[in-house]
Design a binder for these strands. Structure first.
Lengths: 345, 345
DNA sequence: GTGAAAGCGCTAACAG
DNA sequence: CTGTTAGCGCTTTCAC
């Protein structure tokens, strides 16, 4: 069995009676090596099953060709798409991805950051956890000039690229849509105001109300963790409001679904009594009845853009350093949860 | 800014006037080094911001402390849970995970295998793609004695550990459940018979029918890719069957949901006209109306078990080499899609 | 065009 | 308990 020992450039060099330097150069397609020699080396490498040793190379070059990814959870269709997008560009550029989940916890996010730092990733792609407040755990990367790209759940507390949508505008459209259907008592369910996305969505909601001359009411904002259970809890809360709200704008689809299910069980009709708009265009939005009106935005593309920008910084000559933000488009997808019926006065 | 140069064990040794060997040992908590020296070294390392260089270590030890993961898709709650389980044990054992998606394609799976092989992962955790037939792309790992653990979608064509549930039994229970409710014309929707899980589920279905003296009908088996769309297609197919089937057992929840939605649109009542049982206990099963009866099995635990076994092989003294299979329990979760009404004769 | 040689930072004999 | 030393496989000057 010849497959026991790894073959190295020394083996190739010996067999061909040339120096390892030439082999090394040939393998990197260095133009200084003659075409003929290159061919001979490539052929032999192929034949002997040579594979380059990344550690040795990394040790020399001080780079890993690895990109770290920290995301809250992997089991959303949005994140899955985003990761597929990252993988797509990373692979084609010769980078590997190390993916880790923060499970929406700042502590886990911190631990992941340390691990990735120690693994010397060349760059980092991050979508922040719900409860992350301090972003001090990213300081070491900044100090070492390891580029950081935030996507979706971003921050402006740090020097780094951000890839996101215009959440203010999206929320503004969602809310305006509800108003245009005659709704006036619109509840907003969101998460704690630590993440840009929730801050912005609330702002868009407020602004839409203001523009429609509907007074903003603090008690129409319900804050939770946006889980399906949180949606159910919110339903109980909504049920007790006097008068009953006639619409709900939720900052994510899952929570919207939890809330809709609970309300339906209480005998409240959707959208006749209460219209719904969610956020994310998760597949579940077309399973719930009535189908959920929501905001769609491109996960795959966001992943691609984030990765592409990171890699550009990696290979690029230092490049643009100051914070710049890339905005992708989003759109309102109208379904029956908002338009399926006329409101009861 | 002192953060430019990496500090190495040489720096520590020099400052402390001891040898690098001692530093190296102390850093690994080798019992042979005195407590006092260890403390001094640890303190200085901390102070100087020392971090170990994995490449150098890997280059020496020929190990990466990295485990490769190849899965069909990351965006199912089952996979997300499984990965969380793997991360849990991997992290606590000092291993990193490199996760890659095959997107249910053999080609992508192959490419991923090559990449991970070249990255010299210490071991591999795999759940096979739908259409993978040849598993030749795992040969290099076998040859190099890199341990392989298959989970959920496993294979017996290769020497490796398998972690899975008893799919025959689970399908048997699902089918028997439908029969016990008075159903006789039970359709089974599944994927191509390349993966153990689908082969086994079909077998369990057949066996249950046989035990209940219900003749098996080839035309009651619908093969597709188990996507939501495939479910909708199957619905059209089912609609045309004479007489109309009175139950459907689907090999996954997503497809079941697609089928249910389509049938409902055709005016078929669930479960009165057709009862449904799915597989996986995906969150969507409690969103669809009526809620879907399904098979639940522990993703998180499966991930843990798979990772734990892989790591045992890694650290263990060669260990058990022959194929062994670990079976986790699963259970039928009964909901309204099967029991919600009496069948119309 | 090609070769010689010096490390990259760490581990693991082996020798005290 | 601690130190010396020889590499792990590769890249990269600097020569020729």
């Amino acid at each position: 069995m010849s497959s026991e020992k790894e073959v190295t450039i020394y083996d190739l060099a010996r067999k061909l009676n040339i120096s390892i330097a030439t082999v090394s150069r040939a393998l990197k397609d260095d133009p200084v090596v003659s075409k003929k020699t290159k061919k001979r080396i490539a052929d032999l490498a192929q034949e002997m099953g040579y594979r380059s040793n990344n550690f040795a190379r990394n040790l020399r070059t001080q780079r890993t060709n690895t990109i770290g990814v920290i995301i809250p959870r992997i089991n959303s269709s949005f994140m899955s798409a985003a990761i597929a997008g990252m993988e797509n560009v990373a692979t084609s550029e010769g980078y590997n991805l190390i993916i880790s989940q923060s499970s929406e916890s700042q502590e886990k996010e911190k631990a992941n950051a340390v691990t990735l730092f120690n693994n010397r990733v060349d760059g980092l792609l991050v979508s922040l956890a719900y409860d992350t407040e301090s972003i001090a755990h990213f300081e070491p990367f900044i100090k070492k000039k390891i580029p950081l790209v935030f996507f979706d759940r971003t921050t402006d507390q740090l020097d780094g690229i951000c890839v996101q949508i215009n959440n203010v505008k999206a929320a503004y459209e969602a809310t305006t849509h509800l108003v245009s259907l005659g709704r006036r008592r619109i509840v907003h369910i969101t998460a704690t105001q630590k993440r840009n996305v929730y801050i912005d969505r609330l702002q868009g909601y407020k602004q839409a109300l203001a523009d429609q001359r509907i007074p903003f009411r603090e008690d129409h904002v319900i804050v939770g963790n946006l889980s399906q259970e949180a949606g159910a809890d919110a339903a109980t809360h909504i049920r007790q409001m006097q008068p009953l709200p006639d619409a709900v704008f939720v900052a994510n689809d899952n929570c919207a679904v939890g809330c809709m299910i609970a309300l339906k069980q209480m005998g409240i009709r959707i959208p006749e009594d209460i219209a719904f708009v969610g956020f994310n265009n998760d597949p579940v939005s077309t399973v719930i009845e009535p189908n959920l009106t929501t905001i769609n935005y491109p996960g795959y593309e966001m992943g691609q853009v984030a990765a592409r920008n990171l890699i550009a910084h990696l290979s690029g000559s230092s490049g643009t350093s100051s914070t710049n933000t890339i905005i992708l488009r989003s759109e309102l997808v109208i379904r029956e949860s908002s338009t399926g019926g006329k409101p009861t006065p």
